[in-house]
Every structure is written in structure tokens, then in C-alpha cells.
Simulated scan of single mutants.
Amino acid sequence: MANTASAAERAYQAIRDGILNGVYPTGTMLGEEVLATEIGVSRTPVRTALARLQDEGWIVIYPKRGALVQGLSERAVADLADARLILESTAASRASAEAREMLAERLCRLIAAQRAAFKADDVRRFIELTIEFHRIFVEAAGNDVLLELNDRLADRQRFLLFSYGDRLLARCADIIVEHETLAERLRTGDGAGFADALRKHLVDTYGTQIGELPRSFRSTAPTAGGR
């Protein structure tokens, strides 16, 4: 029983990583037999893993045909961008001056690493650095629950960025400039400027429209450094 559970978990992680990292793009039909061979397990744990992934919304299983990898709908992309705007702006607005300086140094190092990844045409590395970069804004709040929410969104963020492929690579230079702006707004404690820059960055990267933060939020949210 333990071996079966272990094999099912291994199959789940392998298939899920393949979906999130673009190995199995949207529209790919996954077959149990092929997956079992690739992962090195029997078809039973693969079947268990696919059922779990269907429950999570990553695939749709078609009996006797396979499992179709699902993309994110336009509504799901817009909702993701909106959630990231609220989460990151809220968290960054609560960072102390000391935290801002410390985090700004980490952000600068990540931007330098992004430049290197872009120069090497390493999209996979660039995406992972981007996810880490945005996570730092949520870390700024020092709130474990906000960080947990961020990490729950990271899979969708990763999947979406990988799905953009060459389009993302074409925008990498602009993304780096936008990241520099965000890092500077955080460092100086410009909460409103940070929110505006983040909104534009998300709209341009995700190719969707999201609403402005409510005026009440923007006027009452503490400036970065205030607690």
C-alpha cells in the first residue's frame, strides 16, 4: 500500500511539474501508458495521479482517449492578475523602512540574474526568477498567511508564464525595466506609485485588463514603512 501511494505521489509530481513547466502544453493529450513508461511506474498510480490533477482543474479526463491539458480561461487570467495586484500592493505597503532596504538588495540581485537568464535565452530560469522576485513583495509584509496565499497562486503564475513561450521572451527586456521600477518604488516607500506600476506591469505581462485599486484602499493603506 505504501509503495502504491509513493508511486502515485511520484506520478502526480512528475505530471504536474510537466504541466506547470510547459513540458505538456495546453491542448496536449496525455496517455496513461506513455506517462507510466516515462515516469517508471505502472498505469495504476498514473491513473490515480490524473484523477487528482483533474480535481485540481489542470486536466480533463476522456475515458479511453486520455487526459487533455487545460489552459486558463480569460476570466481566470484576469482574476489571477487582479489577485496579484491586491496581494502584492497590500503586502508591500506594510513593509518597514528597514525591511524595504534589505529587500531592495535582494530584488537588485534577482534583476541581475534575470538579465543573465535573458542574455542566455533561458526562459525557464527567467520565469523562476520572476516568481521569486514577486514573492519578495509579499514577504515584505511579514505575514505568513499572505505568503501562503501567494504560494498557492504561484502554480497558476508559473503555468501562465510558460504558456506564453516566445511572447514572454520578446517581453523580457521590458519586464526587467518594469521590475527595476517596482524595486525602486518599494525602496522609497512610494505605495501609490508601486501600485500603479504593478498594475501596468501585470496588464502588459498577462495581456488582460484589471481594475484600479479602490480609492479608499489607496488613501487609507499605510505608506510603505508604516505599521
Rank of each mutant, 00 (worst) to 15 (best):
N21T: 11
D121K: 14
R187S: 12
P222I: 10
A170T: 07
V177I: 04
A83H: 07
L169I: 03
I15P: 11
I19E: 07
R167F: 04
R47K: 10
Y206P: 00
R158W: 09
L169C: 02
R47E: 05
E101H: 12
D190C: 07
I111M: 13
D166S: 13
L182S: 04
T208A: 10
S163H: 05
L147A: 01
A104E: 10
Q70A: 13
T208M: 04
Q114N: 08
G226A: 08
E139P: 04
E74P: 09
P45A: 03
D79T: 15
R125Y: 04
A92H: 14
I86P: 00
Y62W: 09
T205R: 12
V60P: 00
D204Q: 09
E33F: 09
V23Q: 14
L169A: 15
R94E: 03
A92G: 13
M29F: 03
G57L: 11
P45T: 06
E74D: 10
E98R: 14
A116R: 13
D82T: 15
F118N: 12
V41T: 15
A195E: 08
A99C: 07
I175N: 05
E38N: 11
L169S: 15
T205F: 00
Y24P: 05
F217T: 13
T205I: 13
D17C: 02
F133I: 05
I111H: 11
V138D: 07
G27C: 05
C108T: 14
A117M: 07
C172V: 08
A36G: 08
R167G: 14
G226Q: 10
A36P: 07
R47C: 01
V23M: 09
D144E: 09
G57Q: 09
A95G: 08
G165D: 15
L169R: 15
D82L: 11
V41S: 08
L182M: 04
I111R: 15
T26Q: 11
Q114A: 03
A224T: 15
D151F: 05
A5L: 12
A197Y: 02
I131H: 01
A5N: 08
L85N: 05
L186Y: 08
T26P: 00
R158D: 03
Y164A: 04
G31P: 03
R100F: 13
L186Q: 06
A112C: 01
L161D: 01
R10Q: 06
A81T: 05
A14S: 14
A14Y: 10
A140H: 05
P222E: 08
R47F: 04
A117S: 12
T181A: 07
S42D: 12
H201G: 01
D55Q: 15
D17S: 12
V41C: 06
A140Q: 09
A14N: 04
T208D: 02
